[in-house]
Design a protein around this nucleic acid. Sequence first.
DNA 1: GCAAAAGTGTTACTCGTACACCCATGT
DNA 2: ACATGGGTGTACGAGTAACACTTTTGC
Lengths: 237, 237
Amino acid sequence: MKPSKKQHSYTYPFPKADNTVDIVVFGLRDATLEVLLVRRRDDPYKGQWALPGGFVNMDETLEQAAQRELREETSAEVSHLEQLYTFGDPGRDPRGRVISVVYMALVRSPEIATKAGDDAVETRWFPVENIQIGTLAFDHDKILDLALTRLRSKARWQPLGVGLLPEEGFTLSELQTVYESILGRPLDKRNFRRKVLSFGLLYLTRQTRHPKEGGHQARVYKFDQGRLTREGIDFEV
Amino acid sequence: MKPSKKQHSYTYPFPKADNTVDIVVFGLRDATLEVLLVRRRDDPYKGQWALPGGFVNMDETLEQAAQRELREETSAEVSHLEQLYTFGDPGRDPRGRVISVVYMALVRSPEIATKAGDDAVETRWFPVENIQIGTLAFDHDKILDLALTRLRSKARWQPLGVGLLPEEGFTLSELQTVYESILGRPLDKRNFRRKVLSFGLLYLTRQTRHPKEGGHQARVYKFDQGRLTREGIDFEV
DNA sequence: GCAAAAGTGTTACTCGTACACCCATGT
DNA sequence: ACATGGGTGTACGAGTAACACTTTTGC
């Protein structure tokens, strides 16, 4: 139980699994839903794309580990992480027993700069629709699939969008585009407006905005931050 | 990364966390929802009640570990386990870093005989309503609370009851009692019947049953096992 | 005969969904 | 003028929730 430290090694009476975190970072760029992947520098699965992630340190929470790994492999932090599931089948990693707690996040793609980290030669955004099943390392196909299902089912119940849209305000059309991108299908404009306004989490500002080219002026809304925090609404993912 | 085995000890270049599973076993006895707890034999929290659980072996899946621990501390297996959440804050276990994957199950209490296992002097069922917050070991209060929330929210969407009611058949009143026990509130008889029958997962047998004392004969239903498995419905928890 | 349990329909409300037109503006 | 995008209301169906009385039977 107690590790006996002798010259940079730790000895235990029983073998122990490794604990990792993996993060499914969904990103939105224009109107496409993307996911952040890293290309593995080393074996196993050298050269293949995988979810960002890495080992959990002894003195950090699982969520902190996820944030740190993300910071190491990208450059930014995400404002909110949600635990998705824990994968721990023996054999899911050829190197040995690895138990991975998977988190997910939702961000604006362009704000997360990609950079190569320790385990990765390259970090890149991929539109989720373009990812062929069977191409990701480890069991990451399965993980991505679960994350996508969860994200979409959450989108049906919970408002999402804080953090995806500018603090300064946004139009309902912009918010609708966010939802359509996540759900991967078009939504009815009138129904969407009714529903999202009925949550009572948006307020109307006095500003309006002109569309890029032609068209009516759009009213600008903001999230009612007070109500969001008061009601403890998890608006992020 | 690779453990070097020398005289019953395992040495790694970095410290490693312990991996455990804990199981929230909900049980139904008559009309009360219970949870299975074990009294700890050893420190920390010696003498206090805790969720059953234990260490994950290297060659078993997380779910198999949960089943094994349950078998060791009770005597029966449960037919279905569902992963709930993974708790891994440093400091949640005073002995060191312990990452625990929590599963939940739902059974008939009387069918799970309780016995003392390795880590427990005693194993007992407790009605969930009687458990005072702050009395369980570790962060198990928080875990139980989350499990209860999840169970109840599942009950609102999914049919539950297979495994809780006798194979030979049951009356709709009995099924209703199951739901009421889980949800902790009374349900309208007519609405309940309409809804549960609309799932199309029950079929009517020719048998009837007499209530214990006075009252109309009740018709006996069975689950349509064919449809359950065909539609892959997770009827258990 | 009375207590106990089974069984049975209707109404109102909420929510989701489908659907079409006019308005303001930039080019 | 026309193309582009913003904004609005209604009707139908599904599901949920509330509500009371009659029937059978054991005691």
